[in-house]
Amino acid sequence: MKNIIEFKDVSKYFGSLKVLDGLNLEVGAGEKLALIGPSGSGKTTILRILMTLETIESGLITVEGKPLWHEKVNETLVPASEAHLQKMRQIIGMVFQQFNLFPHLTALSNIEQPQILVRKVTKEEAREKAANLMDLVGLEDKKDHYPHQLSGGQQQRVAIARALAMDPKIMLFDEVTSALDPELVDEVLSVLKKIATTTDTTMLTVTHEMNFAREFADRILFFDKGQIVEQGLPEGIFTNPKEPRTRGFLKKYITGLT
């Protein structure tokens, strides 16, 4: 499997706090990854760096073989220009914990507008795709609703559709059910599972839903203190974690683990 994402010795600080500590990570094209671990362990930061919302202090990240935060000028790597970042962002889409839908636009327009502005497709094309995606996430009857007229779960499904409309090769999901009431979590997770099984999009998910992670992911990464402590197949990590830190963390979520 060809790697679509590579982190080489990547470090990131917030002031004097080291949030990523010499991270190395390879993600295969089409792979579904679940990132788990205590809060503050750096897993959300990885997504935000990939989405170019946070810079890195050292190391190199490549996406589809091209450096993300750098570009080549006369054979030397220099910090990326905004133009380069814009090119790279075409490959990547993100769904946020707080949905971040545009409140002044209807659900359908939220999905249409980015296609029209960024991908320069026609209004009709954008509308058709938006309608199809609203079907996919099970909201075909909510097209003309504004975000504030939708439940959290419905808003999040619109946000997923909006990200999908841009045809990203990599999708990032940052704790997408953490802000939801418990009864609304499943409707969002089942949409994620549907996308995972029906597309070859590479997916990175930061989540605290362990049952979901187990079903959804090809590989689980356990993070602590800015490093990958343990990684592997869901079966192995959830039934027989090797590292004491992984075991300690998972005990809170999985009954029967000792």
Binding site: T52, R89, I92, F96, Q98, N100, F102
Partner: peptide, 18 residues
């Protein structure tokens, strides 16, 4: 305007003008 709105626009690859 919440910070998340700026981030959503950036994640959708909006230009500064857009």
């Amino acid at each position: 305007v919440p910070k998340g709105q700026w981030e959503a626009a950036r994640s959708l690859n909006y230009s500064a003008y857009h």
